[in-house]
Design a binder for these strands. Sequence first.
DNA 1: CAATGAATGATTGTATACAGTATTGTGTCA
DNA 2: TGACACAATACTGTATACAATCATTCATTG
Lengths: 232, 232
Amino acid sequence: MNKQTVQSPKPAATAEMVVQALSVAIHEHRLAPGTRLGEDEIGEVFGVSRTVIRAALQSLAHLQLVEIQRHRGASVAQPSLREAREVFEARALLEPRTARSAARLARPDDIARLKRHIADEHAALAEADLGRALRLSGLFHIEIARIADQATITGFIETLIARSSLIIALYRRRESALCESTAHHALVDAMATANAARAEDLMRNHLEDLHSALDLRERAAPARSLRQALLP
Amino acid sequence: MNKQTVQSPKPAATAEMVVQALSVAIHEHRLAPGTRLGEDEIGEVFGVSRTVIRAALQSLAHLQLVEIQRHRGASVAQPSLREAREVFEARALLEPRTARSAARLARPDDIARLKRHIADEHAALAEADLGRALRLSGLFHIEIARIADQATITGFIETLIARSSLIIALYRRRESALCESTAHHALVDAMATANAARAEDLMRNHLEDLHSALDLRERAAPARSLRQALLP
DNA sequence: CAATGAATGATTGTATACAGTATTGTGTCA
DNA sequence: TGACACAATACTGTATACAATCATTCATTG
């Protein structure tokens, strides 16, 4: 169906393919925060040596999707409460302004692409494929940054979205409807009419909604390991 | 003198040490944009194998300090005119707000540290060590971000400062005095009196000054390679 | 029986060997 | 003389072997 599920076992995979596959798995919450990522194990799955896997894991570490501890290997990152707050503060700083620029620069085909995106989200939700819907929702934000035509800021937003996925996995309030695409729809409408100020406001509100769908109150930090969680 | 010049040839270096050493060399403009970075050559210098060097170069590539082309190796990055503009737009978006937060949060020892920083800059300028002065100037901005206590945004600013160093190397107007630390001094004063709004303004103006000290007018982009420069 | 310690196993860190690709140099032909 | 094809070279891409470190287990001891 979709070309993104790179689970092919036999053909030699490149580092970038491994990064992509692991990213998608993490974004779709098929790899939970804290999951250990052994080099040999992943290498067998993709049919390549540890050399390639190490490069991929380092890339993911730079994106802060995985954490690498010296002599202890890699595992899916577990953003702390503090990091979670920081990520949403950064998003609040970057994305509304970016949405404003995007609304000014958006061309008809950009709008069309965004609308297709929203349709895909709806489809994923209809199939009850929560993971995919969540990932597409993130891609929607990235698409807006791309329209704003600022590669540097887009790169920042990409890492923030990636980490947001982990944060949602860790701190989502039970059953909170994070994927309400009505906000996305309103944003596209504002952009279609080049209403930059409104796009900025809508994005700000949308981020606040996302933020309030999380439970970021002070509490015991999620355990970094089983032992740490159960012993003390 | 300063411990940062990690040029020790014999003892085994770790990847992070190589990253640090190359970063400093690039920041101090001892490695010019475009310089090829052969793996064997660097490996000999630091007395480690290509494995370690490759990891270091990949880290630097993620920071966008070096560019890696498949099968063609790494070289010191050459930000395009467009990238240069983007970096300063991003800085204009992030740093003034960060300075505002820093001014609110700064504690006496933070102020003292910043003042020592400025003194170091003066000393470097007195010794006509332009490279070191430039690097310290960048560290000053990073220090402010640290005071604002937002690790995520600080990380973004660090990469922007790093790239700014390359941009300055490529696009500085002849003899422009980029290192006027009077602006830094005024900033520290505003922070010392917790004048957040003034700190934000000063940072904005300071960035505009930096920006206008560059020649970012449209022109032939600097060549990525000799062939690209001469053939078409 | 709990606690400490050493031995074992598993996993990562590093070096090296080999394969593949891009570049450079050389020779031939028009 | 100049352009093109081909061989040689240098470099990166990948796999693998070995060393170092950490985690676990099991035996020993108070």
